[in-house]
Computed example of a mutant assay.
Amino acid sequence: MSARNPAGPTPSTPSAAPFGARLRRAMDDRGPLCVGIDPHGSLLTDWGLDDDVAGLERFTRTTVEALADRVAVLKPQSAFFERFGSRGIAVLEKAVAEAREAGALVLMDAKRGDIGSTMGAYAATYLDPASPLFSDAVTLSPYLGFGSLRPALDAASAAGCGVFVLALTSNPEGAEVQRATAADGRPLARLMLDHMAAENAGARPLGSVGAVVGATLGDLGDVVDLAINGPLLAPGIGAQGATPADLPAVFGAAVGNVVPSVSRGVLRHGPDIRALRKAADRFADEVRTAVGGGTADR
């Protein structure tokens, strides 16, 4: 896979291309794949690193160097940086900037959810071009009500960014909330997806409000409609048991908008940079084949 910068200009002003358009371009050019940056202690140990800030920095710098010029999306998990306090956040800030400079779209996996001014503060943290943690998109939780996300939705739109909203997650506990019946009789996850579809109405080639839907959930056709005209982030590929070949059965006609997310399946090949790249290329090619996109040029 050649090193390219398909994502276009950094969205530092509202005139930049919307996130959905930039994501579509990156997926078509680099392959529809998101790689998580999840520096948990056991993985640092597997890399021969200490579970401290120095190990965190080495792990993160190596991952960004190996992958930021070739994968469509990098997804740092904020919690694994936050656990080291301000020094960990400093590593995260640098990683976000360097990954975006190399052409990857950065999805901050923070899963924020709150109301009013607090939601506005979260939006300013990740979706304001003046913030040191400014990212192309952020994950959000809607289970204080979809309307509680409005400050983030508005901030994302203004900055040309995106959001990925939790809908149907792969953890078993999620079902008790996400598959519960809303007041109007719809499953709650379906209600959230319908809100997302409304946000994306009329966007071309792809809306900027995405959904998080687990790749391990099986056929969802009788539960929800995944045609939200937005991207579908699909965690669960690799170590959690799902494979690229499972995607058509889970996502049906919406499979072309799926961004599969893999973390350990790629990261376990570190710290060797060539091995990390080879693993990411293999996953991207398997996804292309599964969704009918062929194989990326090398």
Rank of each mutant, 00 (worst) to 15 (best):
residue 93 E to P: 01
residue 72 A to Q: 04
residue 253 A to N: 02
residue 31 G to K: 03
residue 64 V to P: 03
residue 99 A to E: 06
residue 178 Q to V: 11
residue 245 A to H: 00
residue 54 A to M: 09
residue 17 A to C: 01
residue 271 P to E: 14
residue 260 P to D: 08
residue 85 G to A: 05
residue 76 P to A: 14
residue 204 R to E: 15
residue 153 L to V: 15
residue 221 G to M: 07
residue 254 A to Q: 00
residue 186 R to T: 12
residue 72 A to P: 05
residue 95 A to T: 11
residue 136 D to F: 00
residue 111 K to L: 09
residue 46 D to A: 15
residue 155 A to F: 01
residue 277 R to A: 09
residue 127 L to T: 01
residue 5 N to S: 11
residue 264 R to T: 06
residue 260 P to V: 12
residue 190 R to D: 14
residue 193 L to N: 05
residue 63 T to M: 06
residue 275 A to Q: 09
residue 258 V to K: 10
residue 136 D to Q: 04
residue 50 D to T: 14
residue 218 G to Y: 07
residue 106 V to K: 11
residue 143 Y to L: 09
residue 31 G to I: 06
residue 205 P to L: 10
residue 235 P to A: 07
residue 8 G to I: 10
residue 105 L to G: 09
residue 176 E to M: 10
residue 209 V to W: 01
residue 40 H to A: 06
residue 93 E to N: 12
residue 20 G to I: 06
residue 44 L to P: 10
residue 246 D to M: 00
residue 230 G to L: 01
residue 130 A to S: 15
residue 252 G to A: 04
residue 144 L to Q: 14
residue 18 P to S: 11
residue 213 V to C: 02
residue 175 A to D: 15
residue 293 G to D: 14
residue 184 D to V: 03
residue 210 G to M: 02
residue 168 L to F: 07
residue 262 V to K: 06
residue 36 G to E: 11
residue 212 V to A: 05
residue 104 A to K: 07
residue 290 A to T: 13
residue 254 A to D: 00
residue 285 D to L: 03
residue 189 A to E: 10
residue 11 P to L: 05
residue 165 V to G: 02
residue 272 D to G: 03
residue 139 T to C: 04
residue 145 G to W: 05
residue 265 G to F: 05
residue 146 F to W: 14
residue 224 V to L: 11
residue 290 A to H: 04
residue 214 G to Y: 10
residue 269 H to A: 06
residue 59 F to Q: 02
residue 151 P to T: 11
residue 134 F to Y: 10
residue 60 T to S: 15
residue 234 A to Y: 03
residue 252 G to N: 00
residue 236 G to T: 08
residue 11 P to H: 09
residue 218 G to I: 09
residue 175 A to N: 12
residue 133 L to F: 13
residue 174 G to Y: 04
residue 155 A to E: 01
residue 42 S to W: 05
residue 205 P to K: 08
residue 212 V to Q: 03
residue 180 A to E: 13
residue 265 G to C: 06
residue 82 E to T: 10
residue 293 G to S: 02
residue 139 T to K: 04
residue 265 G to E: 10
residue 267 L to T: 13
residue 291 V to M: 10
residue 170 S to W: 12
residue 194 D to C: 11
residue 200 N to W: 05
residue 170 S to R: 12
residue 60 T to D: 13
residue 141 S to N: 15
residue 54 A to R: 15
